[in-house]
Amino acid sequence: MLKIKKVTNEPSCPVDYAFKRIGGKYKGRILWYLHLKTVMRYGELRKTLSDITPKMLTQTVRELEDDGLIHREVYHEVPPKVEYSLTETGAELIPFIDYLRIWGENQIEKERIKR
């Protein structure tokens, strides 16, 4: 008899689930800057993340919004105004991102001392 595997969309590993939501070059930085500034417009994010292309920024903020980590507020005016802020779920990540920031600073300092 042929067995059929049941496919589910449920995450199998919490660590994998978390890194899929915040992994990548820009997501953690966007969350961190939104924490520091509370609310940022698209142009502010673009200036703050000078190494990101407009296409990548748009894709990344959409993913963060789809994952419920940031809120996108659209103001129907001319010119269009869009503001981004952390959701409650996004804000829960800040202590962990801050810990990673501190760890990164320490590692950079250790590398500097080695040279």
Rank of each mutant, 00 (worst) to 15 (best):
Y42H: 11
Q59M: 06
E92F: 06
L93C: 09
I70E: 02
Y17V: 04
G28Q: 11
G28L: 04
L31P: 00
G43P: 01
P80T: 10
P95L: 02
L49W: 05
K37C: 05
R62Q: 12
D67H: 11
L45H: 04
I94L: 03
D51W: 05
K110V: 03
N9Y: 08
A18W: 07
Q59T: 12
K37N: 15
E77Y: 05
G104Y: 11
E109L: 09
K110F: 05
L49K: 06
G24Y: 05
V82N: 05
E109V: 06
K81Q: 11
L64E: 00
T60L: 00
Y75N: 09
R101N: 13
P11D: 05
R112C: 01
Y33T: 10
R41P: 02
F96S: 12
P11C: 05
L31G: 00
T48D: 06
A18Y: 10
E65Q: 11
H35T: 04
E10V: 07
N106S: 14
I108L: 13
T60D: 03
A91T: 07
Y42T: 14
P14C: 06
E111S: 09
Y84G: 01
M40T: 04
V61A: 02
G23A: 00
G23D: 02
R29F: 06
K25W: 04
K3R: 13
K6L: 14
D98Y: 02
D67G: 09
D51Y: 04
K25T: 09
H71M: 10
R46Q: 14
D67V: 00
R29S: 11
L86V: 01
P79N: 02
V74G: 01
Y84Q: 02
V74I: 15
T8M: 09
R72C: 13
L2E: 12
T48Y: 05
Y17D: 14
L86M: 01
G104F: 07
E83W: 11
K3Q: 09
W103C: 10
T8A: 07
K55H: 08
G28D: 03
M40Q: 06
R21T: 08
L86N: 02
P54A: 07
V39D: 14
K114G: 01
L57H: 05
V15W: 07
Y75W: 10
H71Q: 13
L86K: 05
D66K: 12
E111L: 14
I22A: 01
E63D: 03
R101F: 10
D51L: 08
I22Y: 01
E111D: 07
Y26P: 05
Q59N: 13
I113V: 15
T48E: 12
P79E: 01
G28V: 04
R101Q: 09
Y99A: 14
Y84K: 00
G24D: 00
H76D: 15
V78E: 15
F19V: 10
I70R: 01
K114D: 06
D98M: 08
K6M: 09
L93S: 06
G28E: 10
V61N: 00
E109T: 07
D67Q: 11
L45D: 06
E44L: 03
Y17Q: 14
D16Q: 12
R41M: 14
T87E: 08
Y84E: 00
Y33Q: 11
T58R: 15
